[in-house]
Design a protein around this nucleic acid. Structure first.
Ligand SMILES: [Zn+2]
Ligand SMILES: [Zn+2]
Ligand SMILES: [Zn+2]
Ligand SMILES: [Zn+2]
Lengths: 134, 134
DNA sequence: TTCGATATGTGATGTTATTACATTTGTCAA
DNA sequence: TTGACAAATGTAATAACATCACATATCGAA
């Protein structure tokens, strides 16, 4: 629970798999990559992913059932703003950004509707600049 | 493709199942509800759902793998704004709203980053006003 | 050391979605 | 009318994603 999280063996293996990937990975892709490190079952991956999510070191992309290392590893945890993801459907690259105005507008809606938000997902699917110029 | 979409038999059955539900349903829940109407396989549900999504009559909630009838059935298709969903984790109620400022901010980011967006997901998870007062 | 919390190993199962292929139905023009 | 094509449907099998149940191990504090 320190600033730089102490990770267990499995958590490190999973995090490193995500950190060295150039895009989001599914849990089962991670599992396959870690077979040689002794991983045998999905739960080994999912348990590590849960912790890493808790620690804010990775994000889950709901719209593609995949996970990605946080792009702002030393800026945890995004100053409490909501995070938006732009996901390229051609190359898989994910851009991560936060916007105080969007965060504020969402808060306005939840406040005026008595809704207690716990987690907010903002995912933009499309084609990135690199892939769009082809 | 008319204002009030002409639906096939399966599409009507699936849409009516969603319309009479008081919250989102999974594809397999729909399948179970339609067994007596002759539904036997998931694909019958998924094919109908795909069309209804095309027509803008229903929405898919990515964060819970479920589908919900559009709350604005006569306001298609939301004036091209992005739609946000507030999903109560206690009672399952879904509130649907759109916000031009959020839409604008997202467009600003995509425009300035050369990202061509095709679909944007905004889902707020939490506890609704009714459930929060308990 | 002993207890409890956390982490791990493993098989089975549950849930969500798609592929592949055959058949039927609707539309329209020759 | 009929042939041809597109759209819709039926069905089984499989793939992809996620959790449950239970046993074992590891670590830190009382
Ligand atoms: Zn991040
Ligand atoms: Zn791209
Ligand atoms: Zn709607
Ligand atoms: Zn509620």
């Amino acid at each position: 629970m320190t600033a730089t999280q102490e990770l267990t063996k499995n958590q490190s293996l999973v995090f490193n798999a995500l950190a060295r990937a150039d895009g989001p990975l599914s849990a089962y892709t991670i599992l396959d990559q870690l077979r040689n490190d002794g991983f045998r079952a999905p739960l080994q991956v999912y348990r590590a992913l849960d912790k890493l999510l808790d620690y804010g070191m990775i994000h889950r992309l709901e719209s593609i059932n995949a996970f990605v290392a946080c792009a702002h590893p030393h800026t945890h945890s995004h100053g409490h703003g909501m995070i938006a993801f732009a996901i390229c459907e051609k190359c898989g690259q994910v851009s991560e950004f936060s916007d105080d105005i969007i965060t504020g507008r969402v808060r306005e809606w939840t406040n005026s509707n008595g809704f207690k938000q716990s987690k907010t997902t903002i995912e933009i699917r499309g084609v990135c600049a690199n892939c769009g110029t082809a």
